[in-house]
Design a protein around this nucleic acid. Structure first.
Lengths: 343, 343
DNA sequence: TTCAATAAGGCAATCGATTGCCTAAATTTA
DNA sequence: TAAATTTAGGCAATCGATTGCCTTATTGAA
């Protein structure tokens, strides 16, 4: 049933008593083929159901219209929206996407990189995994003549184009907003500090405290609270302090903020009156909770579009220029009820 | 700075005064190479930073360890979870994934298929777009010797392996549950009927009504309500009827159910006492709403895993057998407060 | 010591498309 | 009409890896 043999340009050539080179030229719209034979070739190509073999073509031409994308998890809103944004642009350009997920594992990230190198992709778009160890694998990308664009979670030490979200500014805005709403003891749920994004968010938190002359209270800063459960657990701890916080900034994610809200509801603590809560990323559910959650919109789709456009407009064209350039996608503070103490 | 030339097996051969064939054999772990030279080759391969060119290898071997996936939208939870499930399996097998989104457009779906055919992927996993027109493009997949597995939204006319969610059974269960809770006039928000999944959900709805001897009331069945906004609009209409429904089954999605809930809250209608609401797909937010939403869990991750396993266990091995086989992933009714009138 | 069997590795074709170079025919120009 | 130029299309190498076949060299058996 299955035609194992696919038709090649040689089949077309044989049928028309021509040489494969003419067929190739006709199909690629090249000159040096008369209009009559060109039409004939196109017609028989259609008849024989011919499809170009991209592998052969790419091999010969030494290029590959394929881009590799590595993200920690495909099925996280933030990343799947970035991928959607990337895909929108690359599709227009006729490029293919090979998508890999590192599952937050360094080992697996290395394997993904190796696979993509073997595939000779023309560029890799990467957001590093949570247990990032070192950038040897990223260096080897360049060694094999492959471009690299980092986004969101990046290795600062590496000299590549980067597309970032303004994490520090956003966190600064969040904390400023909390302070202006009258909150006095603001706790921070922070993520793994080997990731730039969490370092930056913490920096923004600290900068805002400093600006307003607030003291830095170490016991109000909690590490590794990035799931709903961990957010809840950290909140239990915080609320058990002799001097508990009156606001919690879940800088890790909206899920952590949800965990905070869970605990507040269980304990009958009024949000935002007794406790202010702010998350990060503007997940869908943040406008459904009671009260609705203040959060930060990161424009993930735009981040993806920018990454892809960066490749086509800069990296692909002027490779030597592709160093240490950073694009910042400015996030936006979305103020909702969970922090509106004053209103 | 960039080493444009990547090392090939010929470079290694030249350096060691060997023939490329020996290098190839050594690297592929083949016999016919002495252990001494094999070690030598592996060592120099590492020194020269050699990476196999998958394109060349695939071309020669006539195979391609790549699978194409086409989904309506990458950034929809249901689909991104399926992709994550697929990726988990294919990654283990050393296969790559090329992911495309049709954006619910038939034209674009056709283009995606063509791209994947050109890429010589070994199999395509597909869920059809909402404005599906005909299956010509799907037929051409087989004509080019490429396997096809359909999942979730499938073309029934086509003779392929399929992985489905038990939509009809699930809808039947939903409506039975509503009836058992004492709801008397149950409305249906339905999706485009050219998609099998929505036809099946409607069939389940009708079957349940029939079983319980309930009449089919056409004015309670509303088409194309699959977003939050459209769900809200349909609800406004329904509640404006002389005899409004006392339950609404948003078979299209949880988002539509959310729209229903919006309207109920605006109008001060008590859920579940005055109006029962049930959604579909078990989105994260359904357990956050007030009241929590009854819905259907589809186990999207498992669907993805099944699709991929199907390929490796059946389709790849016994191609001739790959016809008209259907795997059903049984969904589960998640009963929450929005339909618990009795309790 | 001789012959057979095995091991090690080279040669060259192949996968399918592309492209530089060359030739023959057709067309233009002088 | 002859020379110059353009056009059409063939030839063969190439991209990098693989593999069937063949040739030596080596080992073992008789």
């Amino acid at each position: 049933m299955e035609n194992k043999k696919r038709t090649t340009i040689h089949d077309i050539a044989k049928k028309l008593n021509l040489n494969a080179s003419s067929v190739s030229r006709a199909l690629s719209g090249n000159s040096n083929v008369s209009d009559a034979t060109k039409q004939l070739i196109l017609k028989t190509a259609k008849e024989l159901n011919y499809r170009q073999n991209s592998m052969a073509s790419n091999l010969r031409k030494g290029v590959n219209q394929t881009i590799g994308v590595i993200v920690p998890r495909i099925n996280q809103n933030f990343f799947s929206n970035i991928i959607a944004g990337i895909e929108e642009v690359t599709y227009q350009k006729g490029y293919n996407l090979i998508i890999c997920q590192s599952n937050e594992s360094y080992e697996r990230e290395v394997k993904c990189v190796n696979t993509l190198i073997n595939q000779h992709v023309s560029c890799i778009f990467l957001s590093i995994s949570a247990d990032f160890e070192n950038n040897d694998h990223l260096k080897s990308i360049a060694e094999h003549g492959i471009k690299l664009i980092q986004f969101d979670r990046v290795d600062d030490d590496l000299d590549t184009y980067k597309v970032l979200s303004g994490n520090e500014e956003a966190a600064f805005e969040v904390v400023s907003h909390l302070i202006e709403q009258g909150y006095k003891r603001i706790a921070l749920l922070e993520g793994p500090q080997n990731l730039n994004i969490f370092r930056q968010r913490k920096a923004g938190y600290l900068a805002a405290l400093k600006k307003y002359g607030f003291p830095i209270i170490e016991e109000l800063i909690r590490e590794n609270a990035w799931t709903r459960e961990l957010g809840a657990k950290a909140t239990e701890d915080l609320l058990g302090l002799p001097e508990p916080p009156d606001a919690i900034f879940a800088s890790t994610s909206d899920f952590a903020a949800l965990g905070v809200l869970d605990v507040a509801q269980i304990r009958g603590i009024k949000v935002p009156q007794q406790l202010g809560i702010c998350g990060f990323s503007n997940e869908d559910f943040t406008e459904i909770t009671q009260p609705t959650l203040t959060t930060v919109e990161q424009f993930s789709n735009e981040i993806g579009e920018n990454v892809a456009n960066l490749y086509f407009q800069k990296v692909k064209k002027v490779p030597s220029d592709a160093h240490n350039k950073v694009i910042n996608i400015k996030p936006k503070l979305i103020i909702r009820n969970s922090t509106l103490k004053n209103s």
